[in-house]
Design a protein around this nucleic acid. Sequence first.
DNA 1: CCTCTTGATCTACCATACAAGTCCATACTA
DNA 2: TAGTATGGACTTGTATGGTAGATCAAGAGG
Lengths: 230, 230
Amino acid sequence: MNAPTPLPLGHSKAPSATRGVADRLRQAIISMEFPPGTRLSEGEIATRYDVSRQPVREALISLSRIGLVQVLPQRGTIVTRISTRHMMQVRIAREALESAIVQRACERFDPVIRGSIDAILETQARAACEGDYMTITAADSQFHAALATGADCEMIWQMVLDVKAHMDRVRHLTLQDRDSMRILVEQHRAIVDAIDQRDPELADHAMRHHLMEILRDLPRVLAERADFFE
Amino acid sequence: MNAPTPLPLGHSKAPSATRGVADRLRQAIISMEFPPGTRLSEGEIATRYDVSRQPVREALISLSRIGLVQVLPQRGTIVTRISTRHMMQVRIAREALESAIVQRACERFDPVIRGSIDAILETQARAACEGDYMTITAADSQFHAALATGADCEMIWQMVLDVKAHMDRVRHLTLQDRDSMRILVEQHRAIVDAIDQRDPELADHAMRHHLMEILRDLPRVLAERADFFE
DNA sequence: CCTCTTGATCTACCATACAAGTCCATACTA
DNA sequence: TAGTATGGACTTGTATGGTAGATCAAGAGG
């Protein structure tokens, strides 16, 4: 609270207990290990992960800000149920943000990162042929992250990550066939092509077309697993 | 962690100590009471606000997610310095999100909320004539929030609020004359007009034009108060 | 004069204990 | 039987003590 002290600062990654619990919980929720509506208890999670309640509590605060869990004071914490109304806003937000990223990428894009993208796409293409779901999704994240980084939009990417979590959770419910995987890779290529051509309008269209597809099967999921929805 | 229990749930606002500290700290940072670079200490803030360290800590976690403070493990917490690179991304993100909101507003907009907007604009217009800065900014928030709510984009508005905090902080450094206040109101009117005409392209343009102006004076602030920047 | 060590003093982090609100099954009452 | 207390078993919220890591200043040794 004193005068603005420099505080030298040298970046740290901080492998703290709180972050560990937050990451594990986040992954567990996205992968449907904890399905929507699951009751979470600070104490129970603390025991399971062998930490005290405090780190768990702080992790839950972070997750509640993203919207993955709902903390009801003095009552309990539950994994947020899926809502079509909410998912629509998620889609709109992600489209808006990632469209902005690729449009900016058309203005300037780090050539080094541009080079690394080819490798990512190649990996993904190979995984698509083999139907390797894990590799596909990992490469997908890398691809979108690389776009943001190359366009100097890392802060925006952090925002995208939050909404992306919701979409990833839904995607875990829709089984992907190889055709849709190949389409995915082609859509990625189309986006990169647009950026290479420095065509903002084309890039915008390609990105929105790509993202639109992800929630295509939402109505089917709603019909099959209504208990996941609110 | 059990079977998905309903957990009746009846909404609550939760006037907790954590939330109280978070709100007060947020306001203090935006209003430059705690200027960029200020060292914050959990214990010190706890004493000042007469709560224990835990609520303070949890409040700081929330603020660090927004990016208003930086928590350096085992070293300290500081109010984030302003960065032109960061502010550019903030502007891009807010433009993208609010543009998406008004475009959606052109498709459908709650008529009741549409009615309340006129009152907000009238209040703001009166405040602009009198140079009432506080009322102006309060009405500005209400206006943008009403747009989001009317377009059924409350979740997106929550995201906007986070980036808006950074812009509000900068705006506190640029003194507003009455002319720019009047221009502000006119820009708001232009946005509403575009929505009334159901013209997405016009609405998009009006909103972006409006938001662009906010950071116009950023270079001047940088020249005058370089110590606020990193 | 420079380099390294050491220890005092900060910090955030974590664990534990306590407080307060909610829910629910049970028992009591009209 | 229906309605209403009541107490216990949950929950999250808050307070506090202790720990490990980071910083920095003073001093020893080269």
